[in-house]
Simulated scan of single mutants.
Amino acid sequence: MAEVIVVPFRRIAIGNYEEFRQPGAFKAALSELISTLIFVFAGEGSGMAFSKLTNDASTTPAGLIAAAVAHGFGLFVAVSISFNISGGHVNPAVTVGAFLGGNITFFRGILYIIGQLLGSVIACLLLRVSTGGMATAAFSLSTGESVWNAFVLEIVMTFGLVYTVYATAIDPKKGNLGIIAPIAIGFIVGANILVGGAFDGASMNPAVSFGPALVSWNWKNHWVYWAGPIVGAAVAAGIYEIFFIDHSHEAVPTVEY
């Protein structure tokens, strides 16, 4: 029997800087900006609203459930409205995972991430203005939670998210399962918030962490919310690409998602 050698991330496509000038790439990045704005406005705004209504009791069990529901619903909508334009990433970690699998070029991915970060910042600025100057809370670690605990937690939670994206949205064999991709993606984020929200806020998304950190200018342990999700996304993409996606019949690698 011939030996089969599996090369992870063999389909990575770099693209070129000309993509920055392509109307389609710009429209996709704008779609990511708008979707991320809507998602962050709903998620971050729900926490601010709950704090106002409960005298800063957003870290209670009820507050955690409210955050999970708001983020799950918000992400479901955000992915749905951009799915046919950009692929509905709404998350730099998802974009990194898609890039590693050869589903989006490097240069197009950069445009997506810029759009996602801008969308998050704009959402937080709009929240500050529309709430009379209320602070947008940056993600932070709970008492007793170390940065390495949070790092592992973000890896595991983002692994689950990106693996779900691959299974329901990227896999060529998904068939009709793609119809429920936005629901599944929203559900896994909501479920993970119920797990990790009490420990480190359960980001799973560098853009979601970046906007509040910039607007509140609080960068403490911010690296965790980039490093953890990116590592988790890379692991999920690697496992799914190596073991579950069959590209043997593809003549030309897909470079867009």
Rank of each mutant, 00 (worst) to 15 (best):
F199N: 14
G63W: 07
V235M: 13
A98H: 06
V129Q: 13
F106K: 04
A137N: 12
S58E: 09
F76L: 15
G190D: 13
G115E: 05
S120M: 09
E32P: 00
A66Q: 12
S209R: 01
F139D: 06
V255I: 15
I179T: 15
S82L: 07
F41S: 11
A98K: 08
R11P: 10
G190F: 09
W148N: 14
I179W: 11
G74W: 06
G197D: 11
T60P: 09
V121G: 02
W226K: 02
I5Q: 02
V255N: 13
I245V: 12
N221P: 00
I180E: 01
T136A: 15
G186D: 10
V79D: 04
T164Q: 06
F210T: 06
F20L: 11
L127I: 11
I85N: 09
T60W: 11
G196L: 02
N218D: 14
N55L: 14
G45S: 10
G133D: 09
L194F: 10
V147F: 14
A137Q: 15
W223R: 00
I85Y: 12
S31K: 05
S140M: 09
F159R: 06
A213S: 10
V4A: 12
S80L: 15
K52N: 12
F107N: 08
S248Q: 06
V4L: 13
E44L: 15
R10H: 14
G115V: 04
I12H: 11
G175F: 02
L117N: 09
V231W: 01
A67R: 12
G228K: 02
E18R: 15
S82N: 08
A93T: 03
I155W: 01
A78L: 05
L214W: 01
A42W: 03
T105A: 11
A191M: 11
S142A: 15
R128I: 10
A234N: 05
H249I: 00
F107R: 06
S51T: 02
G196V: 04
G178L: 03
M157C: 10
G178A: 04
A138M: 08
S46F: 05
A25T: 08
D171E: 04
E145T: 12
A207N: 05
Y17L: 04
N55R: 13
C124W: 08
V152C: 12
A135H: 10
T158V: 06
A67V: 01
S58Q: 08
M157Q: 11
V79M: 07
S31N: 06
N103P: 00
A49G: 01
F159H: 03
I242V: 14
W217E: 03
T36Q: 02
F9S: 13
A28H: 05
V7R: 14
I110Y: 01
S146E: 00
T254S: 15
A98S: 15
V255A: 13
V152W: 14
V152Q: 08
T168W: 04
V162Q: 01
L177Y: 02
Y163K: 06
